[in-house]
Design a binder for these strands. Structure first.
Lengths: 207, 207
DNA sequence: GTCTATACCTGGATAGAC
DNA sequence: GTCTATCCAGGTATAGAC
């Protein structure tokens, strides 16, 4: 890992814990193992470090969520068929995988915390936070549920409301259990109960 | 309003906008209209101002949520009967009132933002945030739904999961529309769709 | 209880030797 | 690309006059 990458890495951790203003350039330099002045050979300001993180992590999040089995809009139709063919058990595994990605993935979790802290300070940060953690999930799932209703896998209902009912509890549990790693099992149990209930309410063929 | 109260008042606004570390003692003093040094006649440190806010707002939040028509546990049985007698329209009005309280009430909204920003910096802050915005709503509603199921107003289901399904979307919408006052109508429409769907799924007698 | 003045420190950032 | 040295602005907090 280059020094520049190491700076990004350590800065993200510190920003996620103490916020932008709560983290000094010296804190970052110490974590990296260099003097604070040396840091300015890699970035021209503290702000540039922060902006670089937001840029880079945004794209990395996109790639990762794709890699984690979330198909893109083009593949929505086949995705819907795929999800419909899933057993309840498969559906549970999938929702857990997504939940744990946002909760524990080394980049996703720190990035989410950093944006949560900084969203009120800067409008641009807020837009990124909103886009990734509010809009993206709902939009994708609404499209997916719409297709699944069309195919008769789900009972017809408003896809947007269904997406809200599916995603909001995940978002809530993410916030609730964020700082309690020892209660991960409890979190997963609640998540499972949520998905079971969701499936009970909306799936045409119970399994 | 005494100077001490005014300091709390202005500090809360600034902490909610810029965070604890993003707010200087001089910022607070300027907002109050005194010199920063004078402020130390009322509080012995910046930290003491913050702690006082957390203390005072916590109790004020309790009182207010009671005042806003959320009955205590002792009155749960009559509350359940009361909610059951409500028309769908009344249920919608009530959920909107609660949503708007957390979104716009002059104390609740600022307090929520402040805790959201500061939750990762200090374990105690996190506990307060968690208690007020995660546990309280779910616990109360789970007890209420349990009673309503017992009385046959709601279809029997896990009260905890029902509470999660009811409250999580409110929590999500609160976060989503927090910084977009111009989209309040949109937020209320989504909230309404959510409550309608919730009622459709769980209420025994549709109206 | 408010002011001015000041002490003391830490923060971000630059210059220049190696 | 790292270091030491330094600058300057701004932060928290105290002392003492009014």
């Amino acid at each position: 890992m280059t020094t520049k990458e190491l700076i990004i890495e350590k800065a993200l951790t510190l920003f996620a814990e103490n916020g932008y203003q709560g983290t000094s350039v010296k804190n970052i330099a110490d974590a990296v193992g260099i003097k604070d002045s040396s840091l300015y050979k890699h970035f021209k300001s503290k702000k540039e470090i922060f902006d670089t993180i937001v840029q880079e992590m945004s794209t990395r999040m996109e790639q990762m969520s794709l890699g984690y089995g979330l198909p893109d809009e083009a593949g929505m139709e086949s995705a819907a068929a795929l999800y419909g063919a899933l057993t309840l058990g498969d559906l549970l595994d999938l929702s857990k995988k997504i939940f744990l990605f946002y909760l524990k993935d080394e980049f996703a979790a720190r990035f989410r915390r950093m944006l949560t802290i900084e969203q009120y300070r800067d409008r641009e940060i807020y837009e990124v936070y909103r886009q990734i953690f509010m809009e993206a999930g709902i939009t994708y799932q609404a499209a997916l549920f719409e297709e699944m209703c069309r195919q008769g896998i789900f009972r017809s209902s408003s896809p947007e409301v269904m997406a809200l009912h599916f995603y909001a509890p995940i978002f809530f549990l993410l916030n609730k259990y964020d700082q309690e790693p020892e209660k991960e099992e409890e979190a997963l149990n609640v998540l499972e109960a949520h998905v079971r209930e969701f499936a009970r309410v909306y799936r045409q063929n119970q399994d």
